[in-house]
């Protein structure tokens, strides 16, 4: 055995002297810089987007823009107020549908979902999260818009609500699963009924996490464009009620960005700035409330 060792041709010395070592160590060093460069390359768009949105947004900004309704591209007093109103309407309607329904589904999965039927539901829900949102727009058009007879912010809100349900359901289940079973068992030990226990122990303890997940979902639907194109559609005036079609910030960005008018393009940048600020605010609040969760899809 010992004699064989010397004869296999790559014994003690080949590794110390060879160029091979140098190559390997150099590759290691180079790869550090390569991966770092890749990382920076990925960050460039992020910084570019943030910079451009604020640069162009602030350049075009005047306060009147936030206060004035929409109007023709040649009147330089028209603003984006109608789109802000529309976004608030659509987001509120969406949340009114998506949050309760999502929490119920999530609670069901966490509390009653220890079986293979629920496993299938989970797969359905995870698939629904990733359904292209334009499909939701198409479905809601067929189901709501054709029934109402015209585009409406209500239809837009319903579309956003449908998108929100699986998002909220998933985060609710995750957050409930984080609640220590000790508390839940303690509740039952004290003789609480299943409903009381679920509401006052389970949901109460998971509420912070659920709230942060819900906020992230709100941020997400606020930025959605595709499902609103054929539901809320567009308008140059704030909706007077939920059956009016309405402009929203994302759809306004789309419509104005592809328009040939410079003034409208400026408004698109301002709207983008407002949308990003809202988004960042929510992200910031979420981090403050619940520093442990950092999920994204």
């Amino acid at each position: 055995m010992i004699e064989e060792r010397a004869s296999n041709g790559f014994g003690k010395d080949s590794y110390t002297s060879s160029r091979h070592w140098k190559t390997r160590l150099n590759i290691d060093r180079i790869m550090f810089f390569v991966t770092a460069a890749c990382f920076l390359l990925v960050l460039i768009p992020l910084f570019s987007i943030l910079f451009q949105v604020f640069y162009n947004g602030l350049r075009a900004f005047k306060f009147a823009v936030l206060l004035n309704e929409g109007g023709s591209p040649v009147s330089t007093i028209s603003g984006i107020r109608h789109a802000i109103t529309g976004t608030i309407y659509a987001t509120l309607i969406g949340s009114a549908i998506g949050i309760p329904a999502g929490i119920i589904v999530g609670t069901y999965l966490a509390e009653f979902g220890n079986n293979s039927f629920a496993d299938i539901l989970r797969i359905i829900i995870n698939t629904m999260v990733s359904i292209p949102t334009i499909i939701t727009g198409v479905v809601v058009w067929a189901f709501v818009v054709t029934r109402v007879g015209h585009f409406s912010v209500l239809a837009g809100g319903i579309a956003l609500g449908l998108i929100m349900i699986p998002l909220v359901a998933r985060t609710t289940e995750e957050m409930i699963m984080l609640v220590s079973p000790i508390y839940i068992e303690a509740g039952y030990a004290l003789g609480l009924t299943r409903m009381r226990n679920t509401i006052s122990i389970v949901l109460a303890n998971a509420s912070k996490g659920i709230a942060s997940g819900v906020l992230l979902a709100v941020a997400r639907i606020m930025g959605e464009t595709a499902p609103l194109l054929f539901t809320a559609f567009f308008s140059q005036a704030s909706p007077s009620n939920i059956f009016d079609p309405a402009a929203t910030l994302p759809v306004l960005i789309y419509n104005y960005a592809i328009s040939p008018f410079e003034y409208w393009q400026g408004l698109a940048w301002i709207a983008a700035m407002v949308l990003i600020l809202l988004n960042l605010d929510i992200l910031f609040i979420t981090r403050l409330m619940f520093p442990e969760t950092h999920q994204s899809d």
């Binding site: 055995m1 064989e4 041709g9 790559f10 080949s14 590794y15 091979h20 390997r24």
Partner: peptide, 16 residues
């Protein structure tokens, strides 16, 4: 890792 890919070298080493 050391760049030895030759099965004629590797096979006997594995066996041994």
């Amino acid at each position: 890792l050391q760049g030895i890919r030759d099965k004629a070298i590797l096979d006997p080493i594995v066996e041994r």
